[in-house]
Design a protein around this nucleic acid. Structure first.
Lengths: 349, 349
DNA sequence: TGTTAGCACTCTTAATCGTTGAGTGCTAAT
DNA sequence: ATTAGCACTCAACGATTAAGAGTGCTAACA
């Protein structure tokens, strides 16, 4: 258990360290206004806090640095979230959402950019998930003899287009016939059930209606791939190189390990979804709380945004464990709500 | 003018330095097989080469390093492009293009990835340009009361979809009416002429056919934006963090300047198009030959790929001036040809 | 009993100073 | 024209030293 005084000291140390990135000495805490204690007293308390695992000492004659546990305690109990963002910042962010945008992808990209410039960290935005959406409609637009654009519209109004080509020996009309059939059978079905549905119900039907079963199977397969392919939302990054601003990543090795992880969008997407989908709308994972080895020195703060009540996407910040949690959380909170509003309105259904 | 011997020595120095990243001394050149000269002789030639501007000396008692001019001479006159890529590498790359892919974007992305893993540098792929393509067809697919997906199909078969929303006081049927009109008037027109065409011809027409002129103008405007928006091809990056492998970018400052430049896709796209569109299918820009300040220590090697005879896209490699030009050029040459074949076949028109 | 001043001690950081070794330029001999 | 030899230069490295920040502990104090 921590005394009130210890809490206060811990908070000061964390905040000082977040600011300066240098181990915090007893003197600098003691000199702090509204702290009427001598350095010696602080030292005693610090020794206590270290014993309890909230602080660490890089070496004997250095100041203290918050441990992972220290950050955790800070985030859980010492953070004062009452404070609001500055008015000017809010109005800047409002601008983003007031520009009329025609594309959800642009919004995601822009949000990532804003998120990163506002926080000076690296931002990640996971585009809306279509995982448990249902199919609203399927359209084909012919392009050449043997290729066409397939339009997949989901219940949330998301649209994907893919250009598909067909083997020479298959005509467009055959494809159109297939698409008609698919529309009939698949509208209203959740995307994730598609694959099994097709094999259970449709294959039979196809076999009856079309002469060449083999052929039909092949096209069916290709169409299906298009439909379910992008089931994991796209990843948008902002301020990737902000990582390099942080002194903890001046070591090129460490920087590289995180940056190359960020290049693998599939892994990033997985990490973002890991927790946030089920749990609270806001999640803070500090250092070792992340499983991935390249994130051991990082913190990942994420917030979900929703359509109505259903969470459909994630926005997040990646930075060093020495992160301005308060500010980051406030920005994420604000922007995720703004995103929720936007996509809810956008996909008005 | 360089004597044959000087050329040979210059080539050896460049190649040695490319390999080792360390200034090259006279002794190591002299020890080279098929070089029957003593270090002293080499030293004399080196002094000559330096005087003529092909070499530089980091400090008095260090070996020599190629100057920008030195690299330029190497690329222009000393590179032996006769050599082929190893068979195993070719077959690896063939795999990329043999997988059946349904999307040009995937190919671009994959190419960037391969390019970077093959060369250990950073790769850039500029997706096919639609700049001087003509409009083939325009389609609307309604989604909700006040939003629809607009499909833009160009003459090369590229497709863009955009979800557009309309003000509450405009009905879908009005939009459809407009799209019909646009289709009538705009099919076959190069995209880049669109804007002026609309204002010259269509506005009048619209004014006649539709009751509310103001309203029509507003929708028209929005549709137009969608059509011409993505006129610059998308940029795909591969192996961004490979930059950090190079000793010249172990300095975080330098690394950051290049990496953040890479984040601005519009700038990257501009830089790639700057030269390559007009000139030869292969372009090598060394260090200061690039205008951008962050590329002063970099070389940018690009190759175009084409549809038939028309160049429509660019693939390229960014690395330190100390770059394996031979290898890079061979890989780019191979992959750009492969890309040409693919997109030519793909957009069979 | 909690707080604080004082002091010896630890350990990092930066600066200083030879020493080493790679590499050069020049000269004289081949 | 080439090369062996030699004196010279200069970055890189390691050791030594000095400075300074910060600690833990003890003893005095309220």
């Amino acid at each position: 258990m921590l005394s009130e005084r210890q809490k206060m000291i811990l908070r000061m140390i964390v905040e000082d360290y977040i600011q300066s990135a240098e181990p915090v000495g007893s003197r600098s805490i003691s000199k702090h206004v509204d702290m009427g204690l001598s350095a010696a007293t602080i030292r005693n308390e610090m020794a206590d806090l270290e014993e309890q695992g909230y602080l660490e000492q890089p070496h004997t004659s250095a100041g203290r640095v918050p441990s992972q546990q220290g950050y955790r305690y800070y985030v859980d109990h010492l953070l004062q979230l009452g404070e609001r963002l500055k008015q000017e910042e809010i109005s800047k962010m409002k601008m983003l959402f007031s520009e009329r945008v025609d594309e959800i992808e642009k919004v995601a990209q822009q949000t990532a950019l804003y998120l990163s410039t506002f926080t000076q960290y690296t931002a990640v935005v996971l585009g809306p998930q279509v995982y448990d959406n249902t199919l609203r409609s399927l359209q084909v637009v012919p392009i050449t003899e043997h290729s066409a654009v397939l339009l997949v519209v989901t219940s949330t109004g998301q649209v994907q287009n893919k250009t598909v080509s067909f083997p020479d020996d298959i005509s467009l009309s055959q494809v159109e016939q297939l698409v008609r059939l698919l529309n009939e059978k698949l509208v209203g079905i959740p995307i994730y059930q598609m694959r099994s549905r097709i094999f259970e119900e449709i294959s039979r039907e196809v076999a009856r209606q079309m002469r060449d079963f083999e052929e039909a199977q092949r096209i069916l397969d290709r169409l299906l791939n298009v439909i379910v392919s992008e089931k994991d939302g796209k990843v948008f990054l902002g301020g990737t190189t902000n990582m390099l601003l942080q002194p903890e990543f001046h070591n090129v090795e460490k920087a590289k390990s995180v940056l190359s992880w960020l290049e693998h969008h599939d892994l990033v997407s997985k990490a973002l979804l890991q927790e946030s989908k089920l749990s609270a709308p806001l999640s803070v994972r500090i250092g070792g709380e992340n499983e991935l080895s390249m994130l051991q020195n990082c913190s990942l703060v994420t917030a979900t945004y929703r359509i109505g009540e259903d969470p459909v996407g994630v926005i997040g910040i990646i930075g060093p464990t020495r992160m301005e949690y308060g500010r980051v959380i406030r920005v994420l909170d604000y922007l995720s709500k703004e995103m929720t509003q936007l996509v809810t309105k956008w996909y008005s259904g």
